[in-house]
């Protein structure tokens, strides 16, 4: 049970938005500086029931809605020091936290293991602690390997491929430069690409 803290909900339908924003800003400051439970209860009393209604509309599921409220309000308690009244009102700050939570919840529902998370997209709770989950790069055919394959081409074919693909020359230009017939350039190109394709297939 809570000791000495009454659940306040009196603000719910009273006060002008500006007064309310000022009062909530002040309460957030007190939570940040003194871990003031009374101030937090005031913030909670105002926002939690609103977030619950909003979340139910968004998620369409009672349990998910309450999870979103829980996670959002936990962030408000734990990271109140990141609220900056100069950057916006408490309701905008809390709304954007809720948006991030919803984005991540939907991502997890889709069962994605590692993905772009809301902290990357909307740094509302910025100065995040670094992510400890290092991800190892999956094994993949790299262009370096393709480069090695290019290097294993016969010199004459490689010269043609490099002139065309690296220097961006036309087949006619290559023919002129190397003083060989255009048909030869074409056949060397064709043979080289066929060879590369074969090597790639062997590689797999």
């Amino acid at each position: 049970m809570l000791v000495g803290i009454s659940l306040e909900n009196k603000l719910q339908n009273t006060g002008k938005p500006k007064d309310c924003a000022d009062e909530m800003s002040q309460a957030l400051l007190e939570v940040a500086s003194q871990r003031c439970k009374r101030s937090y209860a005031k913030i909670f009393g105002y926002f939690a029931p609103r977030l619950r209604s909003y979340a139910l509309k968004q998620m369409g599921n009672e349990a998910l809605a309450m999870e979103m409220v829980q996670d959002t309000m936990a962030n408000v308690w734990q990271k109140a020091h990141l609220f900056n009244a100069e950057k916006g009102s408490p309701s905008t700050w809390i709304f954007t936290i809720a948006r991030n939570i919803r984005f991540d919840m939907l991502r997890k529902l889709k069962n994605r293991k590692e993905d772009i998370c809301s902290d990357d997209l909307w740094p509302v709770l910025c100065e995040q602690t670094p992510d400890q989950n290092e991800v190892s790069l999956e094994e993949q055919v790299t262009l370096e390997q393709v480069g090695l394959l290019f290097n294993s081409l016969p010199d004459k074919q490689r010269a043609v491929i490099e002139a065309i693909y690296i220097d961006g020359k036309s087949q006619q230009e290559v023919a002129d430069e190397l003083a060989i017939p255009l048909g030869t350039v074409k056949s060397r190109t064709r043979l080289a690409l066929q060879r590369l394709k074969d090597m790639l297939e062997d590689h797999d």
Partner: peptide, 14 residues
């Protein structure tokens, strides 16, 4: 964001 967050102010609280 400010516009969207007004939905929190205007929603009928649970």
């Amino acid at each position: 964001n400010i516009e969207l967050s007004s939905v929190i102010e205007n929603v009928r609280a649970h």
